Amino acid sequence: MEAAQETPDRPPLDLNALSNEAFLSAHGIPRLTVVESTGSTNADLLRGVSEDPGAWPDLSVLTAEYQTAARGRLDRRWEAPARSSVSVSLVLRPVNADGRPLPTDSYSWLSLLAALALREALTETAGLPADLKWPNDVLVRGRKIAGILAQLGPISGAGTPPVVLGTGLNVTLTEPDLPVPTATSVLLENPETVDRTELLKSYLSRFATLYRSFCNADGDPAAGLAGGPSLHKRLEHLLTTLGKQVRAQLPGDHEIIGHATRLDEYGSLLVVDATGHEHVVTAGDVVHLRPWNPAGAADQGTAVQGKGAQGSAGGAESGYA
C-alpha cells in the first residue's frame, strides 16, 4: 500500500512582491488586489465592472488565496485547498494604441491568448513541458493543469465592452486533492519551482505583453505578436488538438466526429467529418472535446473543462478557468 502524500507547505502569496510598483508599472497593471477568500474572482469582477466601472481599468487584477464557489465553462464547479492554486481574474477593456476599441469578434481569442501566456510561464519559470488543448486548457504530459474562462461584462453606452478573464492553475495539489486522474498540478510534475507568487508574476507579465501587442494589432490573430509569429501561427504549432481525430459533444446530445484541421479567423475549431464536410465548432457551444479512436474504441483524454483542472479537473474557473 502506498504511503499517503504529505500536505505540502502552502505559504501565502507575497503581497510585497505583487504590489511592487516597478513590476506593476512595467507591465501596465493599474491595480492588483489579493483577497484571502471569496466565492469567485470572476464573479467579483463581473459585479465590480457593473457597479463601479471606473474602479477597474484595463488590466486590473484580482487574485484569491481560496475560492468557495468557483465556476468554470458551462457553469462547472470546482474547489481546491486554500493556497494550493493560482486563481486570478483580469479586467480587459481592449483598445488599440489610438484608443480605438477592438472589434468584439476578436474577443474569442482572449482565452487562447491567456493560455499561451500561461504555457510560457510554466515552461520558462517552472520548467514544465506544457501544451495547449482547444479551447481553454493547459496540459502537462497530457494531464490538465489549468484552464481559462473569458466572460463578457455589461455593455453600456458607447464604451468598450469589458471582458473578465479568469485563470486557474493547480500548483500544490497532491494526488488525493485531484478530482479526476486526468488532472495534475505543478507540484506533481517535478517542477523547478512551486512558488505561486513567481508563477503568478510570470503569467501576468507574459499576458500583459501579448495582450498589448494583440490590441495594437487591432485584434488581428494573423498579425505578428510581440515581435514574433502571429497568435494564429503560434497556436497552430502548440495546440495538441489539431491534426487529431476528435469527438465534439454539442448541446442537445449532438456530436461531431472527425479530423480537427485548423482554427478559423475567430478561433473556432474546424472539424472535417468522414464525408468531407467541414464543421465549425465554437468554444461557447462545445460541451466536451475528446480524442477519438476511428476504430470506435473508448475515448481517451480529458474533457474540455473550465478553469484550472478541477471540478472538471482541478484548479481553475474557466474556462475561468
Rank of each mutant, 00 (worst) to 15 (best):
K244C: 09
A274C: 03
D264R: 00
E236P: 00
Q249V: 15
V272R: 08
G284W: 11
L250D: 09
L270I: 10
R262I: 01
T282C: 04
E255S: 10
Q249R: 14
K233D: 15
V246D: 03
H279W: 14
I256L: 05
G267R: 04
R247N: 07
E265Q: 08
D264I: 05
D264H: 04
D264L: 01
H237F: 09
A248V: 10
T240F: 06
E255W: 11
A260F: 04
K233W: 13
A274T: 09
D285W: 14
Y266Q: 10
K233L: 13
A274G: 08
T241S: 02
E265I: 10
S268M: 07
T261E: 14
T241Y: 06
G258K: 04
E236W: 03
L250M: 12
Y266M: 04
A260P: 02
R234W: 05
T241E: 02
V271W: 14
Q245C: 11
T240K: 10
D264N: 06
E278D: 06
R247L: 14
L242W: 06
Q249N: 12
H237I: 03
Q245R: 14
I256Q: 08
L250C: 07
E255A: 14
H277Q: 09
G267I: 06
I256A: 00
A248I: 13
Y266S: 10
V246L: 02
V287L: 12
T261C: 01
L238R: 08
V246E: 01
A283M: 11
T275A: 09
S268W: 14
V280C: 05
K244G: 12
T241Q: 03
Y266I: 03
L239F: 08
L269M: 08
V280N: 02
V271M: 07
D285F: 06
E236R: 03
D273L: 05
G276C: 07
H279G: 00
R247E: 15
D285V: 15
R247H: 10
A260G: 00
A248F: 12
L238C: 04
H254V: 14
Q245F: 15
T275N: 12
D253C: 06
E265H: 13
L238N: 04
V286G: 03
S268V: 02
V287R: 15
V281N: 04
V286E: 12
T275C: 02
H237L: 11
D285C: 04
L238T: 04
D264V: 03
L250T: 14
H237P: 04
H279K: 06
A283N: 10
H259Y: 15
G276R: 13
T261V: 03
L238W: 02
E265S: 07
G267C: 06
H254P: 07
A274P: 02
T241W: 02
A260V: 01
L269D: 00
H279F: 08
E265M: 12
G284F: 13
G258H: 09
A248T: 13
G267M: 07
L263N: 00
K244T: 12
I257T: 13
T275I: 01
T241F: 03
D285T: 15
H277F: 13
G252N: 05
G267D: 06
Q245D: 15
A274D: 13
L239I: 08
H259R: 08
P251N: 01
V271I: 13
P251Q: 07
T261Y: 07
I257H: 01
S268D: 14
V271R: 05
P251L: 02
I257K: 03
H279Y: 08
G252H: 09
G284T: 15
G258R: 03
L269C: 01
V287H: 12
V281F: 02
V287W: 10
T275G: 05
H259W: 15
